[in-house]
Design a binder for these strands. Structure first.
Lengths: 211, 211
DNA sequence: ATAATGAGCGAACGATCGTTCATTATATAG
DNA sequence: CTATATAATGAACGATCGTTCGCTCATTAT
C-alpha cells in the first residue's frame, strides 16, 4: 500500500493554485485511509478508535463519517488497497523472455513485500476481520486470485519448456509457491529482521523443486 | 485444545462423592477457559466481553477475576493450550520403524488439525494478539519450536536413509513443510470445506520433493 | 466451636466506544 | 452577490468496555 497519487496534479496544481473541491475531498479521503492504516498497524483494528484516526489525521471526528460509512468501511478499503499491491507483481510474471528467471524475480519481490512487518501486521488484522466479514474477504481475494492465475500460467510455461511430466497440478503448484513465500515472510516479519541469504536460497530451491 | 482433565478423579470422586474445594476451582477455571475460547472463536477476542464469557459459562462477572488476572491472561492461556495440541503430533514423529511413512502420517494429522475452522480462527486471533504482546508469542512458539526440531530430526533420518545430498538445510526443509501444510489449511478453513483427495496428494508430493 | 480462606456474586466506576446531528464555514453555481 | 451544496466541526448519546469493590457464604484449618 503506497497510496501514490501523483495523478493529474497538472490541471489545477499549476503554480500552487488552489485545489478544486472534489480534489481536496479526494485528498482528504486518501489521507484518512492512510492514517487509519497506520493506526491499525500500530494498535490493531479494534484497539484503534475513530478518534485516534481523526486526531492523527488532523481531521474532526464527525468529518470521517462524511467520507466513510463507518469503521468497517475503512478496513475494507484498506484491504482492497493492500490487495492492489499484488497487481504490480503480476507484471513481473508477464515479461517472458526467461520464464524461470521471471519466477525467481517474482519470488524475491513478493517475499520483500510480504516480509515488511507493517505489511504482515496489516494482513493479520485484515485476515482476522475477514473471518467474520464476507465483504472484506472479497476485496482481499479478488486480486489474489488474479495473481494466482498469473503464477499458474508462469509455471505452466516453465514446465512446457523443460518438458517433464509434473505430478502436481499447475494450480496447486502455484498455491504452494505462495504458501512458501508467505510462510517465510511471516517468520521474518515476526522476528523483525531481514531474510538471510541462506533463507532466500533455500526458498528459491524449494520453489524450483515444486516445478 | 481438548482440555482433557481425567486427572486423579480417584481420591475424592468415588461414588459421586463431593469434590474438594481445589478440584471444583480447577474445574471452574478450566470451564472458563474453554468457554472463553468458544467466544473468541465465534466473535473474536476484542469483540468478546468478559460479560459474554461469564454469562455463557454460567459464572458471575466478578468471579472470573478470582481465577484470572484479566482478559489477556485468558487469551495467553488459550494460546498455550492450543500449542500443547502440537505435543501430541510429535509422538507421530518418534515412531521410527518407517520414517517416511511417519512423515506422511504427520502431514495428514497436522493438516487435519489446522484445517478445522475453529482452530484456524483461534490461531488468527492469537496471532493478531501476539503481534503486540510478547507473552503470548512465547507460549505460542515454545511448543511450535519443539515440533519443528522433531520434524527436522525426522527429515534428517529420512535423508540419511536415501543417502542423497540435499541442498536445502534440514531446518529450512522442516519449516517449509509446516508452511505448506498451514497454507493449505488456511485455504481449507476459509472456504469451510474438507481437503480433497487431490489436494492431499499434491501436498504429500510437494513435501516429498523438499526432502 | 471458631477463625481463616477464598470462591462466588453483581452493583458500580470511569473510560471509551461508534455513531449521530445541529451547526458553522466555505467553495461553487446561477 | 445570493443561493445552494457540501466539507468540516465537536458536543452529545446510549451502549459497552475491563476492572474494582464490598459483600455473602461454604469449605477448610485450628
Amino acid at each position: 500500500m503506497k497510496f501514490e497519487s501523483a495523478i493529474a496534479q497538472n490541471e489545477k496544481n499549476r503554480m500552487s493554485e488552489k485545489l478544486s473541491r472534489a480534489e481536496t475531498a479526494d485528498a482528504r479521503r486518501k489521507h484518512i485511509v492512510e492514517t487509519a492504516a497506520i493506526c491499525f498497524i500500530e494498535q490493531g483494528f479494534h484497539q484503534t478508535g475513530i478518534r485516534d484516526i481523526a486526531k492523527r489525521a488532523g481531521v474532526s471526528l464527525g468529518n470521517i463519517y462524511n467520507h466513510f460509512g463507518g469503521k468497517t468501511e475503512l478496513i475494507a478499503e484498506i484491504a482492497t488497497l493492500e490487495a492492489e499491491d499484488l497487481a504490480e507483481l503480476q507484471e513481473v510474471l508477464t515479461n517472458n523472455t526467461d520464464p524461470l528467471a521471471a519466477l525467481e524475480t517474482f519470488v524475491e519481490r513478493y517475499l520483500k513485500l510480504c516480509s515488511q512487518p507493517e505489511y504482515a501486521a496489516l494482513t493479520i488484522e485484515i485476515l482476522a476481520e475477514a473471518m467474520r466479514n464476507p465483504v472484506i474477504v472479497e476485496g482481499f481475494l479478488t486480486n489474489r486470485d488474479s495473481l494466482l492465475v498469473a503464477l499458474e500460467d508462469q509455471i505452466a510455461a516453465i514446465r512446457a519448456l523443460s518438458g517433464g511430466k509434473p505430478d502436481i497440478p499447475d494450480r496447486d503448484c502455484a498455491k504452494f509457491t505462495l504458501d512458501l513465500i508467505e510462510g517465510l515472510s511471516m517468520r521474518i516479519a515476526f522476528s523483525e529482521r531481514k531474510p538471510s541469504k541462506r533463507e532466500l536460497n533455500s526458498l528459491k530451491r524449494a520453489v524450483k523443486r515444486l516445478l
